[in-house]
Computed example of a mutant assay.
Amino acid sequence: MNENYNQVLYQEEDPKAYIEDYWTKRSEGFASLRKNELHSDKYQRWEKEILTQLPTGDNLKILDIGCGAGFFSIILAKHGHQVVGIDLTESMIADAKILAAEEGVKPTFCTMDAENLDFDDESFDVVISRNLTWTLPHPRDAYREWMRVLKKDGVMLNYDAEYAKDQKTSKLSGRHAHDDISKELMNQCNEIYHMLDISEKHRPEWDRLILMQMEVSECEVNPNVGQDIYKEKDMFYIPVPMFRIRAVKRG
């Protein structure tokens, strides 16, 4: 898609199309980054982090929302869980299928809108997401959907950050996660920040308050989880503090 078409999308207030366009352009480089992350020390750190937050039980049914190139889906599938990964961007799903096959696991991947899930009520033991909610035009609706498809006593894990309030990555020297992103794409990313209401929220407190209004028995926030995983200033590094939200659906 050319720049003029992107601008039309923006002017016509079609944020999902504009956001999907951004991630389609980023998909090849993003998949390469996730592939490298799977074979880095970040894999073990993420593995430890996620597994300690899951409910007890083997062969859990897990929905990875906004799965991108399948990083979380692959980790969880390697531990024997039934994983479904969804993403709005078709090229991301294509990359996730390739990467999962290379890693010898078979999650199910499909294209789907995180705000409008095509699953029955109470279908999953776990709903997990990473770096997605900051891109959503209607995050409250998304949370409602995520809780709908979660089983009673199921766990929702959301890893995200206030990226719109700390736009330092394009100004960093040395290695970082946005090191290979073009100026055009960084500008498009910044436009996404400014077009979404969630960018104005005080997070993750806003998320916690929204979730506590739903069918949640407990909801806790760890504001420093990113510091435990991205310790080095390398190709995966982003300085914005990543937080974890863990909510349990009322039984």
Rank of each mutant, 00 (worst) to 15 (best):
T111L: 06
D113T: 04
P139L: 03
A94F: 09
V126S: 03
I98H: 11
A100F: 02
F109N: 00
I98T: 15
R148T: 10
A101F: 00
R148Y: 11
T133L: 02
P137K: 10
D121I: 08
D95F: 12
W134Y: 05
F124K: 06
D95N: 15
D95G: 08
A94P: 00
V155F: 01
C110P: 00
D118F: 01
A100W: 09
D118N: 14
T108M: 14
E102T: 12
P137C: 05
I98A: 13
T111P: 00
V105L: 09
L157D: 12
T111N: 08
D95A: 15
D141N: 10
D118I: 10
G154C: 01
Y143Q: 07
W134M: 04
L157Y: 11
E122D: 13
H138T: 04
F124H: 09
A96H: 07
K106A: 08
Y143P: 10
E103N: 10
G104F: 09
Y143T: 07
D120C: 11
C110L: 14
M156P: 10
E103T: 03
A100P: 02
R140M: 05
F119R: 03
A114Y: 09
Y143G: 03
Y143E: 07
D95S: 14
P107C: 07
L132I: 08
K152C: 11
M112S: 04
A114C: 07
L132G: 08
N158V: 13
V105D: 05
S123P: 06
A142R: 06
A142I: 03
V155S: 04
T111V: 15
A96S: 11
E103W: 00
S129G: 06
A94N: 15
E115D: 00
G154K: 05
D121P: 07
M147H: 12
E122A: 14
D125M: 08
E122H: 11
L136P: 10
